[in-house]
Design a protein around this nucleic acid. Structure first.
Lengths: 154, 154
DNA sequence: CAATGATATTTGTATATACAAACATAACCT
DNA sequence: AGGTTATGTTTGTATATACAAATATCATTG
């Protein structure tokens, strides 16, 4: 009786599920969670979350960059960036200097030395999904998503 | 001098930003956050987050549904579903019955009565992004994203 | 039918993120 | 030049979500 019930639900839910799949809220979040998890696996080798890793790479590329700039380029809020920096600071991978109202973020030597490994993680992550989706398809989708995100900004 | 520095950073970052935009992790998350925010605005009228609202609609559509089923259809983990249900229970919008190891979730009268308003919020949310992106474009992108999410599942 | 394995659910805990408010400093305008 | 506004950063707080472990029940097989 329990099995029949489940089966019955599945049929009915099929219709509902299709509605969900058409919904940008669901699809975007489902994909983001899946992607996040995949990325986490890749970056676990350097014991960083993807956010921390991307922030660190940005700081290495642009030593002295300010939190607001970081927030803009990573599509995060300044407060989130502060929290990410605090964690990287506690791991001695970046450090901050305050001049007036500005804060400058620099990589430490330890942080800079991690760059090759960071790139390796990034390559691995890319390879993981390109293997599944193909290169053109992946890039096209990524660009399309971020374009839509920009359009929705207002 | 400060302005020059920023400008300088912007030029250099342009290249880096393009790299980010091609990255599925970034694009998916950026779009998810933007979409989440848009959805939150729409559902604030019934004082629910989109997740809670979709869960409630699902429960109204399928009274007696189990958390695991809910998790599957909403692309969430069972533990997250438990937490969402707890909140909806505290608002007297759903209630649970336990039979053996199964839990069944039902809408309360108050919950069911909210359905028209929930649909209105959903319509408003759809309208908001369809207005910006067009109907075909939105649906196509949503379906594509969830398909990719499914492919990445393994 | 008892033991073992499978399944459903919940709880403890951790995390990333955001918003609003609090500061601090810079820019601007009269 | 001084007061007001704008900008950059951090902190307090709240939230959604996930993972791992704990529970409880069911199924299955020797």
């Amino acid at each position: 009786m329990y099995k029949y019930k489940v089966y019955y639900l599945c049929i009915d839910l099929k219709k509902l599920e299709n509605e969900y799949r058409k919904c940008l809220y669901f699809s975007a979040n489902a994909l983001a969670r899946k992607t996040e998890k995949l990325a986490q696996e890749s970056w676990s080798k350097v014991d960083l979350t993807p956010s921390h890793a991307y922030l660190l790479m940005l700081v290495i590329d642009q030593p002295g960059i300010q939190p607001t700039q970081i927030a803009t380029y990573l599509h995060l809020t300044p407060s989130t960036v502060t929290r990410l920096i605090l964690k990287l600071e506690s791991k001695k991978l970046v450090h901050r200097t305050m001049e007036g109202k500005m804060t400058n973020v620099y990589p430490t030597t330890k942080g800079s030395n991690l760059l090759p490994k960071l790139h390796a993680c990034q390559q691995e992550f890319f390879a993981n999904y390109v293997k599944i989706l193909g290169e053109n398809e992946s890039t096209r989708l990524a660009l399309q998503m971020v374009n839509v995100a920009d359009k929705l900004k207002g």
